[in-house]
């Protein structure tokens, strides 16, 4: 009898210490081609290097061939790597496109070529958004994101209307392009302020690099809230 009981307990041990399972995450987002550093004006004979990034169906940056085109090559030309050269006064529509097997994306914008003047950066200097809970934990507030002068840093300012529960263990903040996943996200760090205004400095980050703030409970492995970053 004792031997049978031992076999029984050993069987349980083997059963419950076997392999790790899988959780399937619903993490689809629409793929996106994003011009990271658009401009609206460029003087002759300056050049300007555009940077564009392709984010795949789970919001992760993916290497792919980006095709650049200028609609008016007598005013400006653009090479295969996105280097724009101002040739003569006029306007041109610059387009970047991606053509994969099942993805076709194009982003276009107009650039004015002037005989004199300066480069006009089109990107917003400040973006903002609203933090909303996606769980039953309290999390609310508004924020702004600001590109810092003379550096590549970003300043995230969470406003005084911010409030979060202190009951939740291991709350972390991420910058991400997928509100359902921290895969490929930038970890800002553990949340240590749960009420009122506070800020984070994010080094070496462009204001167009991410589209969401994501509040994530690390021990539970689940999102708690998001804030879409809007122009």
């Amino acid at each position: 009898m004792i031997r049978k009981c031992t076999y029984f307990l050993m069987s349980l041990f083997i059963l419950f210490t076997s392999c790790i399972g899988e959780d399937i995450i619903n993490d689809f987002v629409e793929p996106e081609l994003r011009i990271i550093n658009p401009i609206s004006s460029l003087p002759v004979p300056e050049t300007y290097q555009f940077n564009a990034t392709y984010f795949n169906t789970i919001g992760i940056e993916e290497e792919t061939t980006i095709t650049w085109n200028s609609s008016n090559t007598s005013s400006a030309t653009i090479n295969t790597s996105g280097l724009l050269t101002a040739v003569a006064e006029g306007t041109t529509t610059i387009s970047a496109s991606v053509q994969n097997n099942d993805v076709s994306l194009i982003e276009s914008f107009t650039v004015t070529i002037s005989e004199d003047g300066t480069v006009i950066i089109e990107e917003p200097v400040i973006k903002s958004g609203t933090i909303v809970t996606t769980s039953s934990y309290l999390l609310t507030g508004t924020f702004t994101i600001e590109a810092q002068d003379n550096s590549n840093d970003l300043l995230i300012s969470v406003n005084s209307d911010y409030e979060a529960t202190t009951s939740l263990p291991g709350l972390y903040l991420y910058l991400t392009n997928n509100p359902n996943s921290i895969s490929g996200a930038y970890s800002v760090g553990p949340v240590s302020v749960f009420n009122g205004a506070h800020s984070y400095v994010i080094p070496g980050t462009n204001i167009n690099d991410y589209t969401y703030l994501l509040y994530w409970c690390q021990p539970f492995g689940v999102k708690v809230g998001t804030g879409e970053i809007l122009d």
Binding site: E22, I25, G221
Partner: peptide, 11 residues
Amino acid sequence: TTQNDAVSGTT
């Protein structure tokens, strides 16, 4: 104590 793999439902 174990935690499951998180697998993308998309990819």
